[in-house]
Amino acid sequence: MLKKEELRDLSLKANAVRRHIIEMVYNAGSGHPGGSLSATDILVALYFHIMKYDAKNPKWEDRDRFVLSKGHAAPALYAVLAEKGVFPVEELLTLRKIGSRLQGHPDMRKLPGIEASTGSLGQGLSIANGMALAARLDRKLYNVYAMLGDGEIEEGQIWEAAMFASHNKLDNLIVFLDRNKLQIDGETETVMSIEPIADKWKAFGWEVREINGHNFNEITEAVEWAKTVKGKPVMIIAHTVKGKGVSFMEGAVHFHGKPPNDEEYEIAIKELDEERKEIMGNLGGGE
């Protein structure tokens, strides 16, 4: 169990990240709010509680790695890295602008803290496999984390990578599936059904656990458990809500790749500000 203050700090970070996401895509006039918001709590838990990471030295050899395979959720990753201090928060508003280091999809050669250039779906798990293998070759103890989209795993390469990871017993690999149930053309189960998804990963030789991807206790406990698993890669199926945190974006398929308009922007910011006050009120008063 997280301590009360830890929980409050993570909740506040997640709230700040969500606010950045809304500001960034609104300011850019394009981008992907839905899948960024569903991924936020997991990314915040990873970078602010779980991972061995030094923001002052993002190339530190022993750091844990994180691969955002669903690269279109870049705004969430950028906001987390900026909040972490890897680059200035002010730079967030350059998202998608010409000359910016904050590309529409992550570019590892432009921005510090980005471990893999992603955006073409289905490729990140293979890259994470390579990193996990390198750790073994170099006798390093770092873990490799990755996040996949639930639409993304329709790509065949994901299952090639799934086979590879278990065949090579990559137990330093811990993967989250952002199970927000939506892709671009609709619900995953309408477009291309992926269920029974836990059974599929199990059949491919992975240890699997299902959690609520918006509950920090569940996220951190699942990772603690994952670190004890030996000889197998771990898949954490995180049940999430696409657009989480902004009422009219929650479960709304059309906010996959569309920024809020002026009016929606105001409402979203207001909601997040209220959420912030609530977190402070509920948890800020000490014992």
């Binding site: 639409g151 065949g156 053309d185 477009v191 291309m192």
Partner: peptide
């Protein structure tokens, strides 16, 4: 391939659902 709303094959899907197949992100 999960982009029918972008490439506008969604028009065909609406008119002829039996002759349109969404392959997903594959």
């Amino acid at each position: 391939a999960d982009l029918s709303s972008s490439t506008k094959t969604s028009f065909f899907e609406k008119e002829f659902p039996e002759r349109f197949f969404n392959c997903g992100i594959a």
